[in-house]
Design a binder for these strands. Structure first.
Lengths: 224, 224
DNA sequence: TTTACAGGGGGTACTGAGTGCCATAACGTC
DNA sequence: GACGTTATGGCACTCAGTACCCCCTGTAAA
């Protein structure tokens, strides 16, 4: 029944637009009572994102289970869970994206959804960074950066109509975040192979922008 | 008149709560017609944030004028504009914060406001990073990080009841972002004094997390 | 077969936000 | 004083969301 309502709603939204479609229209097409719609969806907007609730639950479960390893890597993997939800139905995701873009109310709603993912990630990182100075700050900044990188790649994939490799695009975007904040040692065997006291000599110009310095550090550490 | 309405609305929101206050209540207290309320505020939520519109205009103007210098520094300064708006009326800001925290609808609305700041910053950075590889990605990630850092400091200042130095707290939070993505040379005379080809030798363990590496780089460059 | 009970769904009426339209008053111009 | 312009009030309407009640169905006990 939830499924029937969601499909009827989405069809109508595509045909007439979101705001031109009333809940009465939806329940008329679905052949159910108006009251039932609000039993399954708290608001009209929720019918556009019927799968985010369970995806958020998935992410929460994943992060609850994750414990060892690089915290940044963990939230990057968490972001990939969301990506896979989108990538499962490319046509639907692309149509929904276009719909969301042209309806301000849906953009705002989507924002609140994204925020819940971000809060979940930040909560996990806060726990992992509990012993760090400014752990809470670091957690929120990293969560925001991961979400921004994920969304950048996701949206460019959606704009392309769902062609291309969404996973690869997101991986590439998250790379930028990991380069800034991730832990190098947890990344791969190349880094793990070195001794603790291995010495790296780096030559760098003081006028270079910091991100270039970071790039140099990466390549010096062999993480590329 | 806008002022009268905003004050009447805010008083009532504090007395009875946001959802328990109808627009009719507000216009009754303000002594104006119901229609006039919606002339000045597109929605009930807007009456809670009467100053964000002009603040956003300020930020846009500031970033339009900013051209030289470190782009990250520019958006950090842009974030400080918002902070100063909050710091101008600490009591009001604190009361509004508490109100916003307990009303989901206001949280969502605030989110959309914050998003507009973030988009403004990202747009500016996109222009500055036009020649960079992944410039758009970098712009959005940095904007998100700056906003997250700013909000972290701002909220902790608001939670404290408006005591303490909000500017200092935000400066400290933004430091974390600048450390990751800013350009070192634009920071101060200490860095500018060095020759372009000055050599820094850094010793670092491969097992250290990346943020610690970055810290080492900073102190080696004398940016602390 | 009848009665008691429980639960999912439908229907009705209501509140309240937001909009469109028109009337009216204030103000300045000619 | 006639006229256009602008700000405000009033009225009626749409529609999302909610509270309340009813009905239908399936199940178990008498």
């Amino acid at each position: 029944m939830r499924e029937v309502l969601a499909q009827a709603a989405f069809q109508l939204f595509l045909e007439r637009g979101f705001e031109q479609t009333t809940v009465d229209d939806i329940v008329a097409r679905a052949g159910v009572g108006r009251r039932s719609f609000f039993r399954y969806f708290p608001s009209k907007e929720d019918a556009v994102f019927p799968d985010h609730e369970s995806c958020l639950a998935d992410m929460t479960a994943f992060l609850d289970a994750a414990d060892g390893g690089d915290p940044v890597e963990a939230v990057c993997d968490a972001a990939r869970i969301v990506l896979r939800m989108y990538a499962t139905n490319p046509e639907f995701s692309v149509q929904r994206y276009r719909l969301t873009q042209e309806v301000p109310g849906l953009r705002t709603y989507e924002l609140s959804v994204v925020r819940r993912y971000e809060r979940t990630m930040a909560g996990y990182l806060r726990g992992r960074y509990a012993d760090y100075e400014d752990g809470s700050l670091r957690a929120e900044v990293i969560a925001a950066a991961v979400v921004a990188a994920h969304n950048n790649a996701l949206r460019s994939w959606l704009r392309s109509g769902g062609d291309g490799d969404a996973e690869a695009a997101v991986d590439h975007a998250l790379e930028l975040v990991r380069n800034g904040w991730g832990s190098g040692a947890a990344d791969g065997e190349a880094a793990a192979g070195g001794a603790d006291d291995e010495v790296v000599v780096m030559v760098v110009s003081k006028r270079a922008p910091m991100w270039r310095v970071v790039q140099r550090v990466e390549s010096a550490l062999g993480q590329d």
